[in-house]
């Protein structure tokens, strides 16, 4: 239980870590759009280079970054296989087994798709989760959604709910761990038995856990009221987000990169094999 880390925030200093969270959210969205704009081999190559640049700029060891791809390896492999076997291309197939035909277009499609998913995960996780603490991320989201307040959406409250939820994940995990140990000490067995038996074995954990989350919520509400919390109205911030020159620079760089990709798509396409 103790080894589960909350989010993936990796605490080092880097130019990307220092960016304003609002800018990072915008950059991540832009980057995702760019990933899907790439349509030929030259722009794909450029995309891979850009992903490498982002990884290097973030000061996060490549090993850690690759770990974030691990959970979706299956999805990547699955989509690649589907593409290879089910894409019908023109001309003669590369391989013909009667019931299955593999065309070169299928392989190209698979490679493009795998690259896209890979860069998508690596790019967005570095721009957001690896380099931004969950708290500043919610802060950024709150500020970006600020304009929605005008149409009556309780943006501050949503952000506060998210912040509190994030804050309590480790607390509740620790609590779950303690309760599990306490019940194990009384002979509870969570690993053996049929599915129904194991589901039943969770009751002695879930009931105390629910009751203590309600207790925590009540205590927290009282503590917040004691410190005069009354929603976002007139509330000042400890950390004021500031857009600096480097933030603007990063934004300009990503936009320029997007424009470059579009240009390559249009002008280089006729000279490329795919």
């Amino acid at each position: 239980m103790k080894s589960i880390s909350l989010g993936q925030y990796y605490a080092v200093d880097s130019p990307i870590h220092r960016l304003d969270p609002r800018i990072k959210i915008v950059l991540a969205v832009l980057y995702i759009v760019i990933v899907f704009l790439c349509s030929n081999i030259a722009s794909m190559a450029l995309l891979l280079v850009s992903a490498l640049v982002i990884v290097l700029a973030s000061n996060i060891p490549i090993k850690i970054v690759l770990k974030s791809v691990k959970p979706i390896l299956f999805i990547i492999a699955f989509t690649a296989i589907i593409n290879i076997f089910w894409t019908k291309g023109e001309g003669a197939p590369l391989l013909d087994l009667g019931f299955i035909q593999i065309y070169s277009k299928g392989i190209v499609n698979a490679i493009f798709l795998v690259t896209r998913i890979f860069v998508l995960i690596v790019g967005s996780s570095i721009l957001l989760t690896y380099t931004t603490t969950p708290i500043s991320l919610t802060d950024g989201i709150e500020r970006l959604l600020g304009p929605l307040k005008k149409i009556g959406l309780p943006v501050h409250d949503f952000a506060m709910i998210m912040t509190i939820a994030l804050r309590f994940i480790p607390t509740l995990m620790e609590e779950a761990d303690k309760i599990m140990n306490a019940q194990k000490a009384r002979g509870a067995d969570f690993t053996n038995g049929s599915l129904i038996q194991r589901a039943k074995a969770l009751i002695p954990i879930l009931i105390p856990l629910f009751s203590s989350s309600i207790r925590h919520a009540l205590d927290l509400a009282t503590a917040m009221e004691c410190r005069c919390y009354r929603g976002g109205e007139g509330r000042t911030r400890m950390k004021i987000l500031k857009c600096r020159a480097s933030d603007i620079l990063a934004l300009v760089a990503v936009i320029a990169f997007g424009v470059a990709i579009v240009c390559i798509n249009i002008f280089a396409a006729p000279y490329l094999p795919f």
Binding site: I179, K184, A185, G187, P208
Partner: peptide, 28 residues
């Protein structure tokens, strides 16, 4: 071993879960 070495953890009151005291004590 856990039946032979009974452990009462810190703040054990937060581990109660049954509907009645009797059932809870009977869990072990």
């Amino acid at each position: 071993v856990r039946y032979r070495v009974g452990l009462v953890m810190q703040y054990p009151e937060y581990q109660l879960f049954e509907e009645t005291v009797e059932k809870d004590i009977a869990f072990g």
